[in-house]
Structures are given as structure tokens and as C-alpha cells.
Computed example of a mutant assay.
Amino acid sequence: MLASFFHAWNGLIHTVVHQRNMRVHVVSAVLVGLVGSGIPLDVAEKVILIFCVLLIFFAEILNSALEHLVDLATRHFDEKARLTKDAAAAGVLVLAIGTVVIFAAILVNNWETVASSGPQIARQVALGLPLALCVMVLVLPQPRAVWVDAVAFLGGAVLLGVLATYTVSSVFSAINAGLLLIATSAARQRRREGPK
């Protein structure tokens, strides 16, 4: 069972390292986590947001696996292979658009809470945007010095710690900690693979 978990983790990290859209989803998930940890939402809304984020991750990982399978099966250009890849990517796009619509609906539904939470939102922005930037630095494919990754990880960890003291949802704080761990693991894996 431990080996299965290890292989699944490697698949997740491989997708983050090699798929640009997955890197975008990781940073976007951090932003969703910041909203969820800063604005009081009811349980149903929290579950919906978490499910949307996880569903997009699942779809992007499945899309990546399908692309690898198509590439393995076809060594030259094939219109059906292109259509297969395009359809899989369209599935991820539909989920991403749906998630944005759901996210907007939740914010609109809670607009009174959002409007009366000015100081909390300002704090989430002041601490959350640098956290998202730290995660973004870690998932970027460009080569960089080890110390840059170390600073990004440590900065993200400190920001998470400060944000955790103000959180309205420890679940979303834990999700952001997990996303920082994924981003750090992706940076480490990219360094192991070396420049391409």
C-alpha cells in the first residue's frame, strides 16, 4: 500500500513539473484556499470549493496520462490522436470554467459577509498574495539557484503560519500547507531531472 501511495505521489509531482496548466491550477488552488480560510463559509460551500479544486486536479492528471498514452500509441501525426488530446483538454477547461462560476456564485451569495470583512480580506491579500507568489516560484520551470527555492519554501511556511493564526477554516489552511508541500516537491523533482 505504501508503494502505491509513493507511485501516486510521483504521478502528481510529475504532472506539476511537466504540465503548465497543472502549475496554474496549483497556484489557483492556493488562492481558493486563501478565500476559504479568510471568509466564513458554511459547510456545503466549503465542500463544494474543495471538491471543485480536487476535481480539476483529477481531470488535469487524467488529461496528462491520456496525452502520454496517445503519444505512446502514435509516433507520427494522427488526426484522431489530436482530437483525443483536444477532447481531454476540453474536459479540464469545462471544469475550470465551472469552478470559476461556482466560486463567483459563492462570493455573490456571501456578499454581505465579504463586504463587512474588509480588514480580514486586506490581511488575506497582504499575506496571501506573497504566499501564492512563493508557490508560483516553486512550480516555475525556469532553472534557478537552490537558495531561491529554499527562500520561497521558508517564506511560504512563515506566511502560512501567520495566516493560520487568523484562519476561519483550518481545513483550507491545511490544503494550502499541502499545496506548498506539492510545490516544494515539484521544485525538488525538477532540480533532480536537471535542465531540459
Rank of each mutant, 00 (worst) to 15 (best):
C52I: 01
C52E: 15
L54E: 09
L54S: 08
L55K: 14
I56R: 14
F58W: 04
A59V: 10
I61G: 09
I61Q: 01
N63P: 03
S64M: 06
E67Q: 14
H68Y: 06
L69G: 05
L72S: 13
A73R: 09
T74A: 12
R75F: 13
R75E: 15
H76T: 15
F77P: 12
F77A: 14
F77Q: 10
A81V: 01
A81G: 14
R82S: 03
L83Q: 08
K85S: 07
D86T: 14
D86I: 12
G91W: 02
G91F: 06
T99I: 00
T99E: 11
V100M: 11
V100R: 05
V101R: 02
V101G: 10
A104H: 07
A105Q: 09
V108R: 08
N109K: 14
N110H: 14
N110L: 12
N110G: 12
W111F: 10
W111Y: 09
W111P: 00
T113N: 04
T113R: 11
S116M: 09
S116L: 11
G118D: 07
Q120H: 12
A122S: 09
Q124K: 04
V125F: 15
V125I: 15
A126G: 04
G128I: 11
L129G: 00
L129N: 01
P130S: 00
P130M: 02
A132K: 02
A132W: 06
L133H: 04
C134D: 01
V135K: 05
L138G: 06
L138H: 08
P141N: 11
Q142L: 14
V146N: 11
D149G: 12
D149T: 02
F153A: 12
L154E: 00
G155M: 08
G156Y: 02
L159A: 03
L160M: 07
A164K: 06
T165Y: 02
T167Q: 11
T167H: 08
V168C: 05
S169M: 09
V171A: 14
F172G: 09
A174T: 06
L180W: 01
L180P: 08
L181A: 13
L181M: 12
A183K: 09
A186L: 08
